[in-house]
Design a protein around this nucleic acid. Structure first.
Lengths: 129, 129
DNA sequence: GACAACCGATTACATCTGTAATAGATTACG
DNA sequence: CGTAATCTATTACAGATGTAATCGGTTGTC
């Protein structure tokens, strides 16, 4: 497993676009994130470059342009960010964090049902060792 | 409501100490976080200073030393970080985020029960319009 | 073939962060 | 009192970040 590099706020937007669909050319990425974020296309190019340097993205040349694609999975990065968030803000205690969100986050009835199911399954697992 | 300033990783450790107990002198804070984090006491002083400048901490002089205390609540900051984390990593969708954590986070049976209860209450609320 | 358009590479630059060290004021000790 | 110890304030400094602009090569256009 390649260690997932640190990915900054702005860089996340670029990664998300490429996790949603890849490979993409720089311009493809610009189309998907630049206007949404109010960024200059140059800014997006810079971010792509940095992400390549960090090893988070790779690319193949296609004629004079590049086609970028992730070299780290979204899951790895999500896990890393989650751990970091959890330890920074909740001292690593998932329970209280979840309690807060489950109490306050906007959730559809369906999502509530799904979460209950997941918890049910976990509870069952715990019962029969 | 004072806008909560951005609080960096290292600064969170200092804030947590002061949210747990305040006011504290610089040395009190050093005692609580420096060794745990392997920081030089100077580093803690720097962080205290920056947090004062940011408006996250206030202090009263007590003789030649200061007694620091938070000027923003933990809740505000937690909410801010949570929103930021959620939108960066999960595009703002709390449902999937919770699903992932509820599936993978280490939770005690008791925590699982509590989460179920919270969900139950929310489900009830939804039923009676 | 000349010039414009486009692309990636390099450079810019102010902030923020992590991590201290030094300076200056003050106080406590001998 | 004078000197050392102790505080806070100021300064340091490299790396990360946000946000671009410029350089240099390639290509498409007339």
């Amino acid at each position: 497993m390649p260690k997932t590099p640190a990915i900054s706020d702005a860089e996340w937007d670029v990664m998300q676009a490429l996790w949603d669909e890849s490979p993409l050319t720089a311009n493809d990425v610009v189309e998907r994130v630049a206007e949404k974020k109010g960024w200059n296309p140059r800014t997006v190019k810079t971010l792509l470059n940095r992400l390549v340097k960090k090893g988070a993205l790779g690319f193949e040349a296609e004629g004079k342009r590049y086609r970028y694609r992730p070299r780290v999975t979204r899951e790895e990065c999500v896990r890393r960010e989650s751990r970091s968030f959890l330890s920074r803000v909740f001292g690593g205690a998932a329970g209280p964090m979840l309690a807060q969100f489950v109490r306050e986050a906007p959730l559809t009835p369906d999502e509530i049902r799904q979460l209950r199911e997941i918890l049910d399954r976990r509870q069952q697992k715990g019962k029969q060792p």
